[in-house]
């Protein structure tokens, strides 16, 4: 059985020093709501021979728990919990769709520890915060030993559980530009509460005299990563925001997605329901 080690560095210098050891597998811990059950499962099952030892690195002491704003942006530290974001007045004012999405993530005792950075780095195709971050064109900032780099949300995910982050890079914060349009989030789960998404979607719309001036749509849980649906966006841009136009554009999401059967729903059902969830998200984003 592999041995486990634990460190909780309070500076990036110490963090990168720990990461230099190649003999041990490095694992980052944020809130733990996904990490810890996965670890428990690993400990319960039959152990592989010759597995590298595991170093658990707690990121909570790196000072990444904050929400700040300037004239044009809001910046959320990666280890800020969902409960803290939900209650934050800046977020309530600027990005109500993010609050809506967070409200639908698990229950309050999970949101008390789960972090936005963990939700992102976990890279689940069903992550509820990600579609909203994608339509808000959020940037994710990764910090490694050689410095920081900013990556757009839509370029960040490469597969289920996979991101562009290198093994020695940590997500430090999320930058969201303030905007003049309105965004919304819609989720279909198997139950009302404490449930993972069958399909989730977010939309961002700027309109003038009911003409669509800018639109961004993202959908989750129907492909290896959360997707931006450019097919839908192209069809809606410049058009009048009528019920019919929105419905027709939403149908286009079927061309973008590649759902699978899993314990929550079948691929067939997801294809049927995806346009509906996208339509509802867009409709919620155009309500005055």
């Amino acid at each position: 059985m592999r041995s486990y080690f634990y460190e909780s560095p309070d500076s990036f210098g110490k963090l990168f020093e720990i990461l230099e050891d190649n003999s041990i597998e490095m694992k980052f811990l944020a809130g733990g709501s996904d990490f810890v059950p996965r670890l428990s499962l690993e400990r319960e099952k039959i152990h592989k021979e010759n597995q590298k030892d595991s170093m658990i690195i707690n990121l909570s002491d790196l000072g990444l728990n904050y929400i700040v704003e300037n004239d044009t942006e809001v910046i959320i530290g990666a280890t800020t919990t969902f409960a803290e974001i939900e209650k934050n007045d800046i977020i309530k004012g600027e990005f109500p769709a993010l609050i809506k999405a967070i409200n639908e993530i698990a229950g309050f005792s999970v949101r008390n520890i789960a972090t936005i950075g963990g939700n992102i780095m976990n890279a689940s195709p069903a992550a509820d915060s990600v579609p909203v971050l994608m339509v808000l064109e959020a940037e994710f900032v990764l910090r490694g030993p050689d410095g920081s780099r900013n990556i757009e949300a839509k370029e960040f995910f490469t597969g289920p559980g996979k991101t562009v982050a290198k093994e020695n890079e940590v997500l430090t914060h999320i930058i969201i530009r303030k905007n003049k349009g309105k965004s919304a989030f819609n989720k279909l789960g198997r139950r009302k509460a404490e449930t993972l998404s069958v399909v989730n979607a977010a939309a961002y719309v700027e309109k003038e005299n009911n003409i669509c001036k800018a639109v961004r749509v993202a959908i989750g849980s129907v492909a290896p990563t959360v997707l931006r649906c450019e097919e839908v966006e192209e069809l809606l841009l410049g058009k009048e925001l009528t019920e019919e136009n929105i419905r027709v554009a939403s149908e286009k999401v079927v061309d973008a997605i590649s759902p699978i059967d899993d314990i929550r729903a079948s691929a067939w059902y997801r294809k049927k329901v995806a346009p509906v969830i996208v339509r509802r998200a867009i409709e919620a984003a155009i309500v005055d």
Binding site: L29, G32, A106, F108
Partner: peptide
């Protein structure tokens, strides 16, 4: 982290203790 039977209060907030790594 599904059932909540292990809920405790950590620094004033309810958390599911099976989701919290002890050293933290």
């Amino acid at each position: 982290g599904d059932c909540g039977a292990c809920t405790v209060i950590l620094d004033g907030k309810a958390v599911k203790s099976c989701l919290v790594l002890a050293p933290t």
